[in-house]
C-alpha cells in the first residue's frame, strides 16, 4: 500500500477516534463548564458504559443488532443513574468545592474500577457489531460499522448543539453556567440543573463507549486513556465551548491516529501530554482561567 492510501487509512482511523473522543470530552466539558468542577471519574463512566453494554448484549438473544440497540438505549440510562447517585451522595455534600471534588472523584474512580473488577472481572470482552459490512475502497476495504460510528457521533453532537442553543433546557444550563447565584435568584433550580448536567455528561461518555465497544473490547481499566485525552481536548478546545471541543477532538483524534501509524505511540503520548501541560502553564486564562482560585 502506498503512502496516500496509508494516510487515508490513518485519517479514517483517526476520525473514528475523534468521533468517540468528541462525545466523551463534550461530557467532561459540559460538567466543567456548568458546574465548575473537574470530574476525574469521567473515564470510569465511559468504562461502565462499555461494560454494561456487554452485559446487556449478552442478555439479548437473536440478531446482534438487537443486543447492540438495547445496549445503546439502556447502558447510558444505567450510567446516568449511577452518576446521579454520585452527584447526590458526594458532590452536592461537598458544595461542589473544586479541589474537594477532584479528590472525591478520584475516590469514585477507584470505587467504580473495583466494582467493575468484582462484578465483571479482569477479562476484556467484545460486543458483536450490529452489522458487518465492508465498504470497498479502491485501495482497501473499510469497516462500514466504523463509518457509521463517525456518522452517529456527528448526529449526536448536532443534537446536543441543538439542545444547548435552541431549547429552554439549554438556556437554563447556560444561565447557570454564566452565574449560578443570579440563576438561583431568577428561580432556576440550580441543584437540579447540576444533577442533570452531571448525569448528561456521564451519559455522553457511556454512549461513546457503547459505540466503540464493538471495535475495542470492554475492560475494567479502559477508562484511563479517554480521561486523559478528554482533558487534553477540553484544555485545547477551551472551556464550555461546544465548537472548540469538537474541533479539538478532531485535531487530537486525527493526530493520535496519524502519529500512531507513523511514530511510536509512547513518544506521541509524551509529546502530546507535554504540549498540553505547556498550554495550561502559559495560556491558563483562556482555558481554565475562571476555575483557578
Amino acid at each position: 500500500m502506498g503512502f496516500g492510501p496509508h494516510l487515508l487509512l490513518a485519517t479514517l482511523e483517526g476520525l473514528v477516534t475523534s468521533a468517540v473522543l468528541a462525545l466523551t470530552a463534550l461530557g467532561l466539558s459540559l460538567v466543567f463548564g456548568v458546574m465548575r468542577v473537574v470530574n476525574v471519574a469521567h473515564g470510569e463512566f465511559y468504562m461502565l458504559g462499555a461494560v454494561v453494554a456487554w452485559w446487556i448484549a449478552s442478555l439479548v438473544t437473536g440478531h446482534p443488532a438487537l443486543g447492540f440497540l438495547a445496549a445503546l438505549v439502556v447502558s447510558p440510562l444505567i450510567v446516568g443513574a449511577m452518576a446521579l447517585v454520585c452527584e447526590r451522595l458526594v458532590l452536592r455534600k461537598l458544595a461542589y468545592n473544586p479541589e474537594s471534588t477532584i479528590v472525591a472523584t478520584i475516590g469514585i474512580l477507584y470505587i467504580i474500577q473495583q466494582l467493575a473488577l468484582t462484578f465483571y472481572g479482569a477479562d476484556a470482552r467484545p460486543v458483536p457489531p450490529p452489522f458487518n459490512v465492508r465498504v470497498q475502497l479502491p485501495w482497501f476495504g473499510y469497516s462500514g460499522y466504523k463509518l457509521s460510528v463517525i456518522a452517529a457521533s456527528a448526529a449526536l453532537l448536532l443534537a446536543t448543539w441543538f439542545v444547548l442553543t435552541r431549547t429552554r433546557i439549554g438556556l437554563v444550563m447556560r444561565a447557570t453556567q454564566y452565574d449560578g447565584e443570579t440563576a438561583r435568584a431568577f428561580g432556576i433550580p440550580v441543584e437540579t440543573v447540576y444533577a442533570g448536567v452531571f448525569a448528561l455528561g456521564a451519559m455522553l461518555a457511556a454512549i461513546a463507549a457503547v459505540l466503540i465497544v464493538p471495535i475495542s473490547q470492554a475492560h475494567y481499566l479502559m477508562g484511563r486513556d479517554p480521561l486523559l485525552l478528554s482533558f487534553i481536548v477540553v484544555i485545547i478546545g477551551g472551556l464550555g465551548s461546544l465548537r472548540g471541543t469538537v474541533l479539538a477532538a478532531v485535531l487530537i483524534g486525527l493526530a493520535d491516529g496519524i502519529i500512531s501509524v507513523f511514530f511510536s505511540p509512547t513518544l506521541a503520548k509524551i509529546i502530546a501530554t507535554l504540549l498540553v501541560a505547556m498550554v495550561l502553564v502559559f495560556r491558563p486564562q483562556g482555558l481554565f482561567g475562571t476555575a483557578a482560585r
Binding site: 473537574v38 473544586p98 479541589e99 477532584i102 486523559l228 482533558f231 484544555i235 509512547t266 503520548k269 509524551i270 501530554t273 507535554l274 498540553v276 501541560a277 495550561l280 502553564v281 502559559f282 491558563p284 482555558l287 481554565f288 476555575a291 483557578a292 482560585r293
Partner: peptide
C-alpha cells in the same frame, strides 16, 4: 507548574507526572 493555581495546578502536575511515567 507554579505559574498556575487551583484546578489548573492539579491537572498540570498530573500531566507532567504522566510524562515521567511514559
Amino acid at each position: 507548574a507554579l505559574r498556575t493555581t487551583g484546578v489548573a495546578f492539579m491537572i498540570v502536575t498530573m500531566m507532567f507526572s504522566q510524562v515521567v511515567y511514559l
